[in-house]
Simulated assay, not measured.
Amino acid sequence: MKDAQETPKTSSKIPKVKQGSVDIYAAQCKTCLKWRVIDTVEEFEGIREKVIEEPFYCSRKPKVCCEDPADIEYDATRIWVIDKPNLPKAPEGFRRSLVLRKDYSKLDPYYITPTGKTLRTRNEIAAFIKGHPEYEGIPLTKFNFSSPKIMEDTIPEVVEKKSSANANKRIKISKDAI
């Protein structure tokens, strides 16, 4: 018999990841290479949008310098993804969302409109803007659907990773095997 105070164990071998969530935004200092937590997605997108012309430095955060310990360490306690530099900031009222595929192979980017509609392609964005004249001035170049790179060394070992050579192969089952 199970003790009432014992914590139940789950049978799942793959950690549960809330789909579409990024729990921490961080930027790496160009000088010391330490990771600094960025407080808001808006601030992170602002850094990412201009990171080539204006690299991130620890001193950009109030009361922080390179001698301070890192805010967060790069390790396998969470899944790390790296966005491409200079991606545009989501237009005012829109929100960029990333959804992790169940097989951990990719993050799919989407945009949430000010009305709450989820848009998955540039054509859907164009149709939305055409149907909502109040957003006509927003250029389509402000919407970028490139996917961040998943750092494979941070994917849990229990996740079966796809090999590119086997990704498109189909398994045939002979009638004799059934």
Rank of each mutant, 00 (worst) to 15 (best):
I24S: 07
Y25N: 00
A26S: 10
A27P: 05
Q28G: 01
C29R: 03
K30E: 12
K30N: 09
L33Q: 05
K34H: 03
V37G: 04
V37D: 08
I38S: 07
D39W: 09
T40S: 11
T40N: 03
V41P: 13
V41D: 14
E42T: 13
E43W: 07
E43Y: 10
F44C: 12
F44Y: 15
G46S: 10
R48G: 09
E53W: 09
E53G: 12
E53V: 13
E54C: 14
P55M: 08
C58Y: 00
R60D: 15
R60E: 15
P62N: 02
C66H: 02
E67V: 15
E67G: 14
P69L: 04
D71N: 13
I72G: 09
I72W: 13
I72N: 08
E73Y: 14
Y74P: 07
T77L: 14
W80L: 03
V81H: 01
V81M: 09
I82R: 15
K84M: 13
K84L: 13
K84F: 14
N86R: 12
L87G: 07
P88L: 05
P88V: 08
P88H: 08
P88W: 09
A90C: 12
F94L: 00
F94Q: 00
F94C: 01
R96W: 03
S97V: 15
L98D: 06
R101A: 01
R101K: 04
K102V: 01
D103E: 01
D103A: 01
Y104M: 01
K106M: 05
K106I: 05
K106D: 05
P109Q: 05
P109S: 04
P109K: 03
Y110P: 02
I112Y: 08
T113S: 11
G116P: 03
K117N: 06
K117Y: 02
L119P: 07
R120I: 11
R122K: 15
R122C: 12
N123E: 11
N123K: 11
I125H: 02
A126W: 08
A127D: 14
I129N: 04
I129K: 06
I129P: 04
G131N: 15
G131M: 09
G131C: 07
P133S: 09
E134I: 11
Y135Q: 02
Y135D: 02
I138V: 06
L140D: 03
L140A: 03
T141A: 13
T141P: 05
F143G: 00
F143T: 00
N144G: 00
F145N: 03
P148T: 03
M151K: 09
M151R: 06
E152D: 12
D153M: 06
D153E: 14
T154G: 01
V158Q: 14
V159M: 00
E160S: 13
K161R: 15
K162L: 04
K162S: 06
S163C: 05
S164D: 12
A165H: 10
A165C: 08
A165S: 11
A167E: 12
A167M: 10
N168A: 05
R170I: 07
